[in-house]
């Protein structure tokens, strides 16, 4: 073997983020997924989802290296079954109550109460479980992400903020969102790098006020800039601390880009009767990720493994089913 030291130099990689996925490739995967789901009457769903995630992670690159999703269909299937079980039980209670709405209204309201209490108790559980599962199944150059939050703390944050949101008739929602993200990101690890979230409820509140009124005055046109502001609020406030040095995520997304993305996605969905969904996914991810960069002294070559192996798929799909888009 001839050893030339010229190829063996190790330049420091720049921490650029990029998405390399193609709609046509994802479409090829989706076709197989849908066909298998049809054959198995939908039971293949968790495997389909795992495959989708594996593709999307593989095509998302940081410093030229792709992420890896290690989750398997089997793990997600277990989560899916558990999630479905809880949902069916809750809906069973609701339907049972609505059968007796005329004969026994009291029973109906009790059932309704159980249903909503159950649902709101599930949300923190689902977020927590999903964070634990997703992060443990995400790696980059072999370095795993991790989530150190506890279920108790999640419940505390969630219920406290829910309480304020309810008594303020929803006005507290921006603070709820910001505080929840603080709790989540504050416990997020990427090897020995730690995340935190700096966005404040007040800032989100102002974005919403401005977005709401300007959207009305511009007959909805401003809503694309509003959405852009929200995305920037979600991304730009994410801080990364690595070996005592801080970096920040930054999105250069513009309102015009978002407008093109949203309208384009809408046209694709309408004119392909939904078949173009794969392109919608890849376009969206490309716009979001390619516009995102890490500002600061983040060194992608200096991450160290800190996580231990972790297995639990319980809540992954429950969060998915409830579609609580927090991240």
């Amino acid at each position: 073997m001839e050893q030339t030291s010229t190829v063996l130099e190790t330049p420091v990689s720049a921490p650029t983020l990029s998405f390399k996925g193609k709609g046509s490739e994802l479409f090829g995967i989706q076709i197989v997924n849908i066909a298998l789901m049809l054959v198995t009457l939908g039971l293949y769903y968790p495997w389909a989802k795992a495959k989708n995630l594996q593709y999307i992670y593989r095509k998302t690159e940081l410093a030229g290296s792709p992420f890896t999703f290690h989750g398997t269909g089997k793990e997600m299937f277990i989560g899916f079954i558990k999630g479905m079980g809880i949902f069916i039980a809750l809906y069973g209670v609701l339907i049972y109550g609505s059968l007796h709405i005329e004969t026994d209204p009291g029973l109906y309201f009790i059932c309704l109460g159980i249903f909503f209490a159950g649902l709101s108790a599930l949300v923190p559980l689902a977020i927590h479980g999903m964070m634990r599962y997703r992060t443990s199944r995400t790696s980059w150059r072999g370095i795993h992400m991790g989530y150190r939050g506890t279920l108790g703390a999640m419940y505390k944050v969630f219920l406290k903020n829910l309480f304020f949101t309810v008594i303020t008739l929803g006005f507290y929602t921006p603070w709820f969102t910001a505080n929840l993200r603080k709790e989540i990101f504050g416990h997020l690890r990427f090897g020995n790098a730690r995340f935190s979230y700096e966005g404040e409820g007040t800032e989100l509140f102002m974005i919403n006020i401005k977005g709401y009124f300007l959207s009305i005055f511009t007959l909805g046109i401003y809503s694309f800039w509003w959405a852009k502001d929200l995305i920037k609020f979600y991304i730009d406030n994410i801080l990364i601390e690595q070996d005592g040095k801080y970096s920040r995520l930054d999105s250069s997304l513009t309102g015009m880009q978002y407008l093109k993305l949203a309208l384009g996605n809408m046209f694709i969905m309408v004119f392909t009767l939904g078949l173009g969904y794969s392109w919608v996914v890849t376009r969206t991810l490309a716009v979001l990720i390619n516009n995102c960069e890490i500002i600061g002294e983040f060194n992608p070559d200096a991450l160290a493994q800190t996580e231990e192996e972790y297995k639990n798929a319980t809540f992954e799909d429950m969060a998915d089913m409830m579609d609580i888009g927090i991240i």
Binding site: L8, T10, S65, R141, G142, I143, D301, A302, Q305
Partner: peptide, 15 residues
């Protein structure tokens, strides 16, 4: 073939 090797303990790519 030339490539990068990652040992799973650090993210440093080794030629």
């Amino acid at each position: 073939f030339e490539g990068k090797y990652y040992n799973g303990r650090t993210s440093k790519g080794m030629p």
